[in-house]
């Protein structure tokens, strides 16, 4: 064991610059990977929160509606309203349906715009009767939209998805980009470790040859290399975890939470989970290239 430790440290000393290169590559790529993971968490948090509140609004015809589902000059008839409500209630994607009359909407409007000059120019007749629909699964909304949007008496189906989806699509692209970039960097880091180990093993090939000849086990021969790359990788993991912690503390906790408290921000538990994954990825990406890098010298 003493021999193994001595070999490990002499190896680390001998390849200082290579080891530093491995540590820095690991650090940067793992940090990026961690950011990617946290970004994904953040997107999910925001999405859950927003999508949970989303309801579909089905606005019914008023006298001056021009939509082809509407009869000119009249509001949607009670029979049409009943038909629409029945269709909504029959739809399996619908969790709940509320009816909001013009008058109720007007009350709501007056509350919202109490201090605004707009209120003076509006009347109750400019409001619209509507159905508000809660969905079983906020992501499954297209079925309801298509089911009712062609019905008689429906002027317009409004759902926030059409505004939110592009935002989330872009966020998704951004997070995929981060993860993809970090994957490339991680591959580079793994290759770098493989090369470093292969070079180190090559420079010790005489010793390895003799070790094999006198019957040292492969495990024993490989252990110093394994410890060497593991230590380098762990240093990278620690630095990357530190970077993530700094990000959470200085950007999320100190700035973002203060300035945008209405949004659900990622918290320490999510950061800890990401750190755990950094550790797993760091260990795997150092152990596997080491085994591959030394295998050639251990062949019998």
């Amino acid at each position: 064991m003493r021999h193994v430790l001595r070999e490990t440290f002499s190896g680390l000393k001998r390849n200082t610059s290579m080891v530093l290169a491995v540590i820095v590559t690991m650090w940067v790529s793992l940090t990026l990977f961690g950011i990617g993971l946290l970004a994904a968490e953040q997107v999910d948090l925001v999405k859950d929160r927003w999508y949970d509140r989303i309801e579909i609004s089905i606005f019914l015809c008023v006298k001056d509606s021009t939509n082809s589902n509407c009869e000119t000059g009249v509001d949607t008839s009670q029979a049409d309203k009943d038909a629409i409500e029945a269709a909504l209630r029959a739809n399996p994607e619908v969790a709940d349906v509320f009816y909001e009359s013009k008058a109720e909407m007007w009350e709501e409007f007056k509350k919202l715009y109490a201090d605004s000059p707009i209120l003076a120019e509006m009347t109750v007749d400019q409001m619209q009767d509507s159905f508000r629909v809660k969905l079983v699964n906020p992501e499954e909304y297209m079925g309801v939209v298509t089911a009712v949007s062609g019905m008689k008496g429906v002027e317009k189906v409004q759902d926030l998805h059409q505004y939110l989806d592009p935002v989330f699509n872009w966020l998704n692209i951004a997070r995929m980009g981060t993860l993809g970039l970090s994957a490339l960097l991680l591959i580079a880091a793994a290759l770098q470790i493989g090369n470093t180990v292969a070079l180190a093993a090559f420079s010790r090939r005489r010793e390895i040859g003799i070790m094999r000849l006198v019957g040292a086990s492969n495990w024993y021969i490989m252990l110093p290399f394994l410890l060497e790359s593991l230590l380098a990788a762990l240093a990278g993991v620690v630095l990357a975890c530190g970077s993530l912690a700094a990000l959470e503390k200085f950007i999320i906790v100190d700035r973002a939470k203060e300035e945008l408290p209405s949004i659900n921000w990622i918290d320490w538990p999510q950061v800890q989970v990401s750190m755990f994954w950094l550790l797993v990825v760091g260990v795997v990406l150092s152990v596997i290239p080491t085994i591959i890098g030394t295998r050639r010298f251990l062949k019998v």
């Binding site: 094999r212 000849l213 006198v214 019957g215 040292a216 086990s217 492969n218 019998v300």
Partner: peptide, 14 residues
């Protein structure tokens, strides 16, 4: 088996 090789080699000096 290849994992048994070290044991063999320990019985042979070269």
């Amino acid at each position: 088996r290849s994992w048994q090789l070290p044991q063999l080699r320990r019985q042979i000096g070269t």
